[in-house]
Design a protein around this nucleic acid. Structure first.
Lengths: 135, 135
DNA sequence: CCCTCTTTTAGAATTATTCTAATTTAGTTA
DNA sequence: TAACTAAATTAGAATAATTCTAAAAGAGGG
């Protein structure tokens, strides 16, 4: 299941296709659990925790993975970022929903106008509560 | 300079108006530096670091302040949130620009549709690089 | 002016993450 | 295919931002 596509994904970003990286990337692609480094380590115990941190850093650097570090557990959560999307977080349960039904074009243009920067990416979190949940 | 308005801001959110809270809140309102707890402590050394953390937690809980914890320094930065706004971050310098020229109505509606939650807030970060800066 | 609950505080404790330095490996070149 | 080299992996130690503890002080209601 560690196939050529994954190799290409890594190598096209200038990353060597090591067994550990392929395994971690595959894990992220096949799990929508927004895991922490420790959660990944629990599931892939043969890979050292240091390597899991190193690998996640690299994957974040090249944009394959993004970080969610606003949850109440004070741990970094990681999310495979195959397609641009945003996050909806239930403030009561910390459940994270991936969603992509929003066009960021206007946001990018507004940001460009406000800053003069060349816009390269975004991270959007929207918070909500369930029907019967207080804020 | 610690006035009734600040007292009201705290009390209307159910927070006692202590000297420390008034001082920290005033500091945040008059500085656009997105400081860390330690930076605030350096500027208000008579307030213990524990109280600065406690106070920031409370201010975040009630929505007066928001957290930016995506910077490379791995420290939490705090931002007075008087008016809803979003953040533009220069990926090369970590400079943070506050901006409010974007209407979140469509985003909220998209999020409501995708999740079924009652949307209560948002946090948007847009990343960019300067004209002569590489990604 | 009390009274009670909340807040503040110094310092200790925690723990997620980073660092270190020795070993192994991927990918290239001969 | 073998050899080479820069990069990656690893176990364990180290770091440091944040949280916790328990005692003292303060806010605000009655």
């Amino acid at each position: 299941m560690i196939n050529q596509t994954l190799r290409d994904m890594l190598q096209s970003h200038g990353l060597k296709a090591t067994f550990q990286r392929l395994t971690i990337l595959e894990y992220l692609m096949t799990h929508e659990t927004h895991p922490t480094a420790e959660m990944i380590h629990d599931n892939l115990p043969s890979i050292s925790l240091a390597t899991i941190y190193n690998t996640l850093d690299k994957l974040v650097d090249v944009g394959i993975v993004i970080v969610i570090d606003t949850l109440k557990d004070d741990k970094r959560h990681y999310d495979y970022y195959g397609e641009p999307h945003y996050h909806i977080i239930n403030s009561n349960t910390s459940e994270i929903i991936d969603a992509d039904n929003f066009d960021v074009t206007q946001l990018f243009e507004a940001a460009r106008q406000a800053s003069g920067l060349n816009i390269t990416g975004f991270h959007i979190e929207v918070y909500g509560v369930g029907p019967n949940q207080a804020k």
